Simulated assay, not measured.
Amino acid sequence: MPYAAPPAGLPRQDSLHTQRAVFTEAYAVIPAGVQRDIVTSYLPGWEGARFWVLARPLSGFAETFSQYIAEVAPGGGSNAAEPDAGAEAVLFVTHGQGTLTVGGTAHALEAGSYAYLPAGAAWSLKAGEETLRFHWIRKAYVPAEGVAAPEVFVTHEADVPLRWMPDTSERWGTQRFVDPEDLRHDMHVNIVTFEPGGTIPFEETHVMEHGLYVLEGKAVYRLNRDWVEVEAGDFMWLRAFCPQACYAGGPGRFRYLLYKDVNRHAALRAR
């Protein structure tokens, strides 16, 4: 299954500069067309790798997570990938092959692979014989009294069932990689799918912060006061309580990788 990727390179000099990028107090849209070579970052401890930083904790922006698209050249990678012992992570692979090693156990990765890495896990990653591309979502884990910390797991989206939302005629569904009632987890990273004509038929307004990366297709998304057209490769950030709705008009499926913070009390003071 193909997944969207940054176009990289640079537009031609005779291209119009107009894109759909927008940054507001309630949401942001970073369209695929602005994810170019000139906006990549390089990180300590990584070789042959560059990163598109889609979200980071920042006043007036993401509060609970960061999200990167990583592109690792053949043979590149890191022997000590995570510098923050308090950070948990999800990796979702969109292209290529590689080897993830956690606690001495090696896991083969390919497009569609999904890995959950708990806080404190020492992990390394090496690309195979072609470019490896993946999403890296990081969050400071919030422990809860009497609740065990979650464990490492590696799976593939093909092994996770698509469960349709009730009363949607199988037009809106979610692949959940973690049981929503598993209180060990304080974040979920799922894949949401809409068949043509599928819709979120009300303005969701809730405490979870969202990061949405469009893997496939196109739709119109209601973000706060605005309807915004989005397509494969676009990223959206939604602040907590930002009203949201969606209409996927087709012609094909509309799918996105969704982050949200869950299962913890609202912090009343700085942790």
Score class of each variant (00 low, 15 high):
6 P>E: 08
227 W>E: 10
152 V>K: 11
147 V>T: 15
95 H>V: 03
26 A>L: 00
82 E>R: 05
247 Y>L: 12
268 L>T: 15
137 I>N: 09
24 T>I: 03
243 P>R: 05
83 P>H: 08
61 F>H: 12
49 A>Q: 03
7 P>Y: 08
191 I>N: 06
10 L>S: 14
15 S>V: 02
194 F>A: 10
153 F>S: 09
79 N>C: 10
127 A>T: 02
129 E>H: 14
259 Y>P: 08
190 N>G: 05
105 T>A: 13
81 A>N: 01
214 V>T: 07
162 L>M: 06
175 Q>D: 04
200 I>R: 03
1 M>W: 12
73 A>T: 07
234 D>R: 06
260 K>M: 08
241 F>E: 02
119 A>T: 02
225 R>W: 05
113 S>M: 06
190 N>C: 09
124 S>H: 09
238 L>E: 03
168 T>W: 04
127 A>I: 00
47 E>S: 13
242 C>Y: 00
214 V>W: 02
52 W>E: 04
8 A>Q: 09
60 G>C: 03
187 M>H: 11
137 I>D: 07
151 E>V: 12
218 K>T: 01
34 V>F: 00
188 H>I: 11
260 K>A: 01
260 K>V: 04
20 R>W: 03
57 P>W: 04
106 A>D: 15
16 L>T: 05
64 T>L: 11
257 L>G: 11
219 A>L: 00
236 M>W: 01
192 V>I: 14
35 Q>A: 11
191 I>S: 02
105 T>C: 06
246 C>I: 13
211 G>S: 08
204 E>K: 09
109 L>N: 06
100 L>W: 01
